[in-house]
Simulated scan of single mutants.
Amino acid sequence: MTHRFFWTMAFVLLCAVTARAGGDEVKIYREPVAFAPFQTEYVKLLSVEQLSSTDSRFGGLSGLVKTPGGYLSVSDRGVLFTFEGERFDRARLIPLRGGNGKLLKGKRRKDSESLALAPDGSLYISFERNHRVVRYARDGSVREDILSFGKEEQALVPNHGIEALEILRDGTLLLVVEGQVSHPFTAVWLVKDGQSKRFDLPLKDGFRPTGVVRLPQTDNFVLLERYYKPLLDVKARLSYLNVSADSVTRGAVLAEFSSPTPVDNFEGIAAHEDTQGRLILSVLSDDNFSLFQRTLLLRILLK
């Protein structure tokens, strides 16, 4: 074997290993979407972008959290997306595993819907169909199953589970169920130290919860809701959500988005302060891996 052949083969092998190591990274294309000026007493729409990729694994993004280094999201197929920085131009993909260490299999097990970031960097992720909330390490491995619904699980129908998940500053978990249009209320749980307390949150005007975010350095919350009638209309609404140990109630409606403002199946919401000290909401849509839907990212100023 000549030295040239040896080093050529070594280079090829190195490239193959590098490609394999980077195979879980997805390139994302960002396209500005035109929109008419939109603002209310509480918010102002700053930008709208469509995110897309040639990688078939991109899509179905159902939750969003801000991290010190970027953002995290989960997909309907049980995959954790790590976005570095603010640009959403590439993402690292990490498949979620079960308690046995094996990759999740089947739609009933993989349908992750929301996530929340704990102070220690671990993640709480909610799943529907097989309804549960699981605590994960950032590598996709299970830290602990944290919530067993027992009889409460009977309140959750297969495709209407825990769509919104957040953490209070004292470590209490806030869980909000999507609910059914035909019901006047949906369920909300506060969970801490293995104890849970349930509240009923009224559903209004055909909207149902899909996301919730705690505003930085506070226990003030913004609730994201969706209105959807197949082939007829889709809308989104932002409202304050008042949360205490003894009650969960609705606050002021901040904005309602509908055509001609670009709207899709918004399910993820995150909040952060920018370099100017402004409070910015990022709202992300789940395209359901459908040719007829888009992954839209809205940036909204909270006044």
Rank of each mutant, 00 (worst) to 15 (best):
Ile125Gln: 04
Leu103Tyr: 07
Asp89Gly: 07
Asp120Phe: 06
Arg108Pro: 03
Thr82Ile: 02
Glu153Gln: 14
Ala116Phe: 11
Arg97Trp: 01
Tyr124Ala: 06
Val134Ser: 06
Gly85His: 11
Gly98Met: 07
Asp120Arg: 08
Gly63Phe: 04
Leu72Arg: 05
Leu117Arg: 10
Val142Cys: 13
Leu104His: 03
Pro119Asn: 15
Arg57Gly: 09
Arg97Thr: 09
Arg129Gln: 08
Val48Asn: 11
Lys102Asn: 11
Leu96Thr: 02
Val142Asp: 11
Tyr71Thr: 00
Ser62Val: 10
Arg132Pro: 01
Leu51Gln: 04
Leu51Tyr: 00
Leu104Asp: 03
Gly78Ile: 02
Ser75Ala: 12
Lys151Ser: 13
Asp120Val: 04
Lys151Thr: 09
Gly78Arg: 09
Glu153Asp: 03
Arg108Cys: 00
Arg108Ala: 10
Leu123Gly: 08
Phe58Val: 12
Leu96Cys: 02
Gly85Asp: 01
His131Gly: 02
Glu113Pro: 06
Glu128Lys: 12
Ser56Glu: 15
Ser126Glu: 04
Gly150Met: 05
Ile94Pro: 01
Leu103Cys: 08
Pro95Ser: 05
Tyr136Phe: 10
Leu51Ala: 09
Glu113Ser: 03
Tyr71Asn: 02
Phe83His: 06
Ser112Tyr: 07
Arg138Asn: 03
Gly59Pro: 15
Gly59Ala: 07
Ser62Leu: 06
Glu153Phe: 02
Val142Tyr: 08
Lys105Arg: 15
Val157Asp: 03
Tyr136Glu: 04
Gly59His: 09
Asn130Pro: 00
Val79His: 01
Ile94Arg: 10
Val133Asn: 05
Gly59Tyr: 00
Ala91Val: 12
Ile146Phe: 14
Gly121Asn: 10
Glu152Phe: 07
Val157Arg: 14
Ser122Gln: 07
His131Leu: 10
Arg97Ser: 11
Val157Phe: 00
Leu61Lys: 13
Arg135Gln: 15
Leu80Gln: 06
Ala155Val: 01
Asn159Val: 02
Ile125Asn: 10
Ala118Ile: 10
Thr82Gln: 13
Leu64Asn: 14
Gly121Cys: 08
